[in-house]
């Protein structure tokens, strides 16, 4: 059943760009990239148990490193990308070692400070980053293995593959020993320590994996938007990722992806002006947190439960129950 659903979904995603126009393909690619970013935040939220307001900085560091290597030093995308990923993971490890011992609000604030430092450095290091104006004209990745990525459609497939590989890799991860150690540390640090789990090491690993996935999103972001500027990496970029992960459902892999789809397409369908989008994000965040802390996935579970119970009961009653829930 589940295999069938995944197969159908894969077929639809592969067929989509052939049936849709350029704009819809663009929108779908945007969704994929947001999904990768939301996934990275969902990992930190759900498996390290921290709100990381520095996530956008990880995206920025990776995106900029890759773009600068390519534009200034003429390095091939496929060589620059692993270097950029290695850079962002090392920075995450360093930052994590320093900050993850801090609890609750202190971690959140210091990561926010880290994000601000990163953004300010990007904005002010004119010689390398071109300052507030940003890096322009970022080209699609160079062809590799006979595949080129210079059309919207081919870039869509690149993003699709990256997301699919991320999902698969993270799915294995949360089922692995490391995944269980992360859950244990999230649930109870003290107890974890006493059953022999090195708490700090696992938290740092969690943050590094989150940074790696965020970096993957960043790698795609540059060529996708063709421009990188510090204004794209404010606090709000991190909060957008949080909203997606929370709206979809924290602690799952599908949740952030759902959240990304929801938050890209709902404003699109309601043809909101850009003004109303942040307000909607804010309202959603509050409502979901207060009313449905498990997000869309939680709501789906509730609905399924209601349906299952509804079938065994007279119609009218199930209707009332539905309204009451």
């Amino acid at each position: 059943m589940r295999e069938l659903a995944i197969a159908v979904l894969a077929a639809v995603m592969i067929a989509a760009p052939f049936m849709l126009g350029d704009y819809q393909t663009y929108l779908l690619t945007l969704t994929l990239i947001w999904a990768i970013l939301a996934l990275s935040m969902g990992l930190v939220l759900g498996f390290v148990g921290q709100i990381n307001l520095g996530q956008a900085a990880f995206v920025a560091i990776c995106a900029y490193t890759c773009a600068i290597l390519r534009q200034r030093y003429g390095v091939d995308f496929w060589l620059a990308a692993p270097v950029a990923l290695a850079a962002v993971v090392s920075i995450a490890a360093l930052v994590g070692l320093l900050t993850l011992r801090l609890k609750g609000p202190f971690f959140i604030l210091v990561m926010l400070a880290f994000a601000e430092i990163t953004r300010l450095v990007i904005a002010n290091w004119q010689d390398v980053t071109n300052g507030p104006l940003g890096l322009k004209g970022i080209m699609p990745p160079e062809p590799i293995l006979g595949l080129s990525f210079d059309t919207k459609r081919s870039f869509y497939f690149l993003a699709l593959v990256v997301l699919a590989v991320c999902l698969l890799a993270l799915w294995r991860l949360i089922r692995s020993r490391t995944g269980r150690m992360l859950v244990a540390v999230r649930e109870d640090e003290l107890l974890s320590e006493f059953i022999g789990i090195p708490v700090m090491r696992n938290k740092v690993i969690g943050l590094c994996i989150g940074a790696f996935v965020a970096g993957l999103g960043g790698l795609l972001l540059g060529p996708f938007l063709t421009i990188l500027a510090p204004s794209q990496f404010t606090l709000f970029a991190s909060v957008d990722m949080i909203v997606m992960a929370v709206v979809g459902g924290v602690g799952t892999l599908v949740g952030p992806v759902l959240g990304a789809i929801f938050l890209v397409y709902v404003p699109e369908f309601l043809s909101f002006t850009s003004h109303y989008r942040p307000a909607m994000m804010g309202a959603l965040l509050i409502i979901v947190t207060l009313v449905a802390p498990r997000g869309l996935l939680g709501l789906a579970d509730v609905a399924r439960g209601l349906l299952a119970r509804g079938f065994g009961k007279p119609r009218r009653e199930s209707g009332e129950r539905g309204r009451a829930g």
Binding site: S176, R177, M181
Partner: peptide, 19 residues
């Protein structure tokens, strides 16, 4: 119980991740 046993086990990351 599994968590405590996994914590003490010598299970390498990659071999576990790759199954």
């Amino acid at each position: 119980i599994e968590t405590a046993l996994l914590a003490g086990s010598r299970l390498g990351f990659w071999e576990d991740w790759l199954g």
